[in-house]
Design a protein around this nucleic acid. Structure first.
Length: 210
DNA sequence: ATCCCGAGGG
DNA sequence: CCCTCTGGAT
């Protein structure tokens, strides 16, 4: 996709949704961090169902440690990968208390050192909690970036770097949520709804059936 | 490259 | 039935 097409691409997404945000439900930065860890290979909807119960029982890192792995697991059993996620949630809460006074650090290396937190989750937290202009490349953004020709790349890191170079600076902070939402509701994995797509004419894929 | 792993959609 | 969902650790 050419420069001018890319600018027009984001101009339209911005016009359609001026203030994009996450669909994960949370009350504090700590809760957002936990929700993002739980969201790996799971839908936001299923995560929200679980975190309503989980955060009511344990809204803080201290309470999460008291609840314990088994207690956390009981609340999140309906999400895939729940045993790993329960273990990571408790371990991550301990590390926040031991190293960061119970607060979510505004620091990539510190975030990635937390159990269950990799580059993608760290980027979501940096962007959503702190408003940093970074791109978290998840399954939606990877697919959409390659399919449309917006920012092709062979792996998620290549796509992230391509996006950082190609997305106009003034759109970078909001680009993450625009792309997630467009991928979730229009540019879907199996049968993209090209007929309803507002950037269809800019796309290198359009409604090819491949 | 493989494992983890439930729910919803098609 | 198979595929997908805001991945990370080994």
């Amino acid at each position: 996709m050419k420069r001018e097409a890319i600018r027009e691409f984001f101009r339209r997404l911005a016009e359609a949704n001026p203030h994009p945000t996450t669909e994960l439900e949370y009350g504090t930065p700590y809760q957002l961090l936990v929700a993002v860890v739980l969201s790996a290979q799971a839908t936001d909807k299923s995560v929200n169902l679980a975190t309503r119960k989980l955060f009511a029982a344990a809204p803080t890192p201290e309470a999460m440690i008291t609840l314990g792995e088994e207690g956390v697991a009981e609340h999140i059993k309906t999400i895939g990968l729940f045993r790993n996620k329960a273990r990571n949630t408790v371990a991550l809460s301990r590390q926040l208390l031991e190293r960061h006074g119970g607060e979510v650090p505004h620091d990539r290396a510190a975030l990635e050192a937390l159990p269950g937190v990799g580059r993608k989750t760290a980027n979501v937290v940096l962007n959503t909690v702190f408003g940093d202009p970074v791109m978290a490349v998840d399954t939606h953004i990877f697919r959409l970036s390659n399919r449309t020709g917006l920012a092709p790349g062979k792996d998620v890191l290549a796509v992230e770097q391509a996006l950082m170079h190609r997305v106009p600076k003034d759109y970078l902070k909001d680009a993450h949520h625009w792309l997630i939402l467009h991928g979730r509701y229009v540019c879907t994995a199996r049968k993209p709804n090209c007929a309803a797509c507002i950037v269809r004419d800019l796309c290198e894929f359009r409604d090819k059936t491949a």
